[in-house]
Design a protein around this nucleic acid. Structure first.
Lengths: 343, 343
DNA sequence: TCCTCTCTAGACAACGTTATCTTACGCAAC
DNA sequence: GTTGCGTAAGATAACGTTGTCTAGAGAGGA
């Protein structure tokens, strides 16, 4: 039983929200006039403007975005389906920043790296009629999006392409990154270089492993026991590390295919980390504090987010434009671990 | 000029979305029947159900959440106004997780640690008629929310209380955390312990600095040049560190008041970190990989997120319930840096 | 047989806005 | 004095749903 004052003030309780009609009555004007004032339409006389504004603050009126969007058709909102909301996500930050600059609100939802969740959140975004979707793809099949895309929903894939569907895409230059890392290690005297990275089922894992093999082929080092794509789990990484470092001709340098792998490797090596030259793909917070600090191939997160928004807006402006894939350069950040000489 | 096929297929272009009415016509039933099928109302005959479902997939119909929400009144969405979307945010992850379990969608927006942005994003959430707001407060004054709160919007503050407004709140036990850290260092033989942390303008900075002073008073160590609240900027932190470590009786141990401070301290100390016992408030990814690994006071992020959602739901269910503040315990995680003996 | 009751499905209004059309008014020009 | 025009403000419809009410069909009991 909710006790409340006659005017609804003082005691918490769901008082019905005032609508434009209430404001109109309070101000003694027509509903439409309130709408004009709220939308800063210049055709309202200054006398009425102030009366309406007074009524708005008297009633604590807040316009209903849902009704407005319904009526106007567009939402001014874009969806961002990212892997998770828990860990650091510089690209999401950049997306948010650039979207705001463009006057758009970002609805960020987490796919939790699960196909089913990805589909769920994307569907949820479509039901909310977002004006576009930026997605870090997880699913192996994005056919479920094709109807939306064909009916004009701008969709931009980030970090990996969509499968079974053409869409604008922003990628990092994985091959160049691996190449840069490899040459950097060669330059520092290494010939036996190992690679541990993501499963080749995953796009980036596939690209990076392939690029690594190509580098070995080009530079003529050993390949046997040196390439370890697979799940990024402690046990698997440790086993791969042992294979690479064991035997008569152990690796003297390592390329870690992503941040999680770098971290697992460092966690396992502990104080021994100084004996193995390491370049990690992907930068992460604190990589510069480790000892030795981790040399990394850094993606340009800000540029990725910016480009994603640009592609989204371009697609919205011209739905017939041919699909584009933008590949952004990566940078080697030497910090110590990648400059160690062979043991 | 948008070229498109007569039926709108094949070429991208904003074809008008089908509505329930279109589906109804396609299926030869009434609009209301489509609505019932979409909402899985059991009072529709199975024959019609399948006909409607066929029409839905034939037309690629996706219900419009805005219209549904407008009509039904509730949105099934809660807003989360957090400091930023870029850095790791375990509490946001927990909020998202628990909200999902409760059948709610989270609209996460970033305040960027700016008062103006906080107000902007909160207002934007209100316009979207979220069913509740979880906020990491930044502003020094939250009066602007009072009308919303009084008219029944559930608002839960996390990590710090709102100012100028009563609301349910979830806090970590800052005083206990500082006390635990202090006693831990005392137990390991330290008597000259320093504190560097956030500005006392900020709630947690104030609480932690005060708790630290109380600890010193209780244990009888020196206070002069030992307490350094202030901005978390490299220069300020370095200066504080030099003050604490300089002089005839330098500190042998340090409590860092938050993660950012811990990181700045470690960044500055570099290889010297092993000479100073350190306990950091707030855990962070990779704190366990550093050498020495960082001993921390860890907040229970999962519990914070869970409690925030619980309070939000409780407030929604009973708007008249007295306001609650839940203070959650923190845990000391010994990893090495806090167990170093006095130099 | 008729009445009632239940169960399905349709008609219509309503949610809170904005777009479009219309009206009223004042003023200048003929 | 009438006409025309430009401008401010109101009336009405529409956006795409769901709540409520009602009609009609069929079942079951007296």
């Amino acid at each position: 039983m909710t006790e409340r004052a006659a005017d609804g003030t003082g005691v918490r309780g769901r008082r019905k929200r005032p609508t434009m009609l209430d404001v109109a009555r309070e101000a003694g004007v027509a509903l439409r006039t309130v709408s004009r004032v709220v939308n800063e339409d210049p055709t309202v006389g200054s006398h009425l403007v102030s009366r309406v504004q007074a009524a708005i603050s008297a009633l604590d009126y807040v316009p209903d975005e849902r009704a407005r969007q319904l009526r106007r058709g567009v939402t001014g909102t874009i969806g961002a389906a990212v892997r998770n909301l828990t860990d650091a996500h510089p690209v999401l930050g950049a997306i948010d920043h650039n979207a705001r600059e463009a006057g758009l609100t970002v609805l960020a939802m987490s796919t939790e790296d699960e196909e089913a969740r990805e589909r769920e959140v994307v569907t949820s975004m479509c039901r909310r009629r977002v004006d576009g979707i930026i997605i870090e793809p997880i699913s192996s099949n994005h056919q479920y999006l094709s109807a939306e895309v064909e009916s004009g929903l701008p969709v931009v894939a980030v970090d990996r392409p969509l499968s079974g569907l053409e869409a604008d895409t922003v990628l990092s230059d994985n091959a160049a990154g691996i190449g840069t890392a490899f040459r950097h290690l060669v330059l520092h005297g290494h010939r036996r270089i190992a690679y541990i990275g993501d499963h080749e089922r995953i796009f980036t894992g596939r690209e990076r492993a392939a690029a690594f093999r190509a580098c070995v082929a080009a530079h003529g080092g050993p390949l046997d026991g040196m390439v370890h794509p697979g799940a990024v789990e402690p046990d698997r990484v440790v086993a791969a590390l042992q294979t690479a470092l064991g035997g008569p001709e152990p690796a003297t340098a390592l390329i870690a295919g992503n941040a999680a792998t770098s971290i697992e490797v460092l966690r396992h090596l502990g104080a021994e980390a100084g004996r193995l030259a390491i370049v990690g793909f992907d930068d992460f917070l604190l990589a510069d504090i480790l000892r030795p600090a981790l040399t990394v191939i850094a993606q340009d997160d800000a540029a990725i987010g910016r480009t994603a928004i640009e592609l989204l807006l371009a697609r919205g402006a011209d739905p017939t434009h041919p699909v584009r894939t933008v590949t952004l350069p990566v940078t080697l950040v030497p910090r110590g671990s990648g400059e160690l000489p062979p043991a």
